[in-house]
């Protein structure tokens, strides 16, 4: 048994700093934002770990895709956040994913018409932000349109986002993560290729 990686050194201030950048990223979709993240057990990206430490606790059900469901990641999340790890994507409040081939996007909860907030937030790890294929974004938080370059986007992501956007105000909110960088794609953002 290897030693568990540490969490936040000063939880109130560190969580506030991460949350504020995350709020910024979600309020301004497509803007690439850097987080100050403590070490996280690979293959969990540093920023994904920081988001988990900031938002997850005993009240949140966390789903990990097979690529991330390693003993180290599970032990680290359980110890530092006390979150419930669930086996079914349908139960997730937070879904962390690193696999780029077979993500069960359509199985994540999108909320109901009355309570569209009871939906999952997907934290999706990609290879790079700010480089790679361009996505064109429009919607609240964006003055006209903006471009976000992403390398290593999961297969079928744009088509799924189109389905997700049609269900508005229901839908899944996405945070793209690469290393310590993040970019928010809330459900209100229309995503197209190019």
């Amino acid at each position: 048994m290897t030693a568990l990686a540490p969490g936040f050194v000063d939880p109130p201030l560190a969580a506030q700093a991460v949350f504020r950048r995350l709020l910024d990223a979600m309020a301004r979709p497509g803007m690439v934002v850097s987080l100050e993240a403590p070490p996280a057990p690979p293959p969990l990206a540093l920023a994904a770990g920081a988001i988990a430490l900031t938002l997850c606790d005993a009240d949140t059900a966390v789903w990990l895709d097979p690529a991330l469901r390693t003993a180290e990641v599970v032990a680290w999340l359980r110890f530092h956040t006390g979150c419930r790890i669930v086996g079914a994507a349908e139960d997730a409040a937070f879904a962390f994913a690193a696999d780029t081939v077979a993500l069960p996007f359509d199985r994540l909860p999108i909320g109901s018409d009355e309570f569209p907030d009871r939906s999952a937030t997907a934290v999706v790890q990609v290879a790079r932000l700010g480089a790679g294929a361009p996505l064109c974004l429009a919607g609240p938080g964006i003055e006209t349109t903006t471009r976000l370059h992403v390398q290593g986007l999961p297969a079928g992501f744009v088509a799924w986002r189109a389905r997700n956007h049609v269900a508005y105000p229901r839908g899944v909110d996405v945070v793209l993560v690469a290393g310590t960088q993040i970019a928010g794609l809330p459900r209100s953002t229309a995503v197209t290729e190019g």
Binding site: F19, M26, T121, P169
Partner: peptide, 22 residues
């Protein structure tokens, strides 16, 4: 901190659905 996490989760959903009361 637990209260702040709860409020922060609500805030992020609120930002994602402009005008909807979480």
């Amino acid at each position: 901190e637990q209260t702040k996490r709860m409020i922060r989760r609500a805030l992020l959903k609120a930002v994602a659905i402009p005008g909807y009361q979480v």
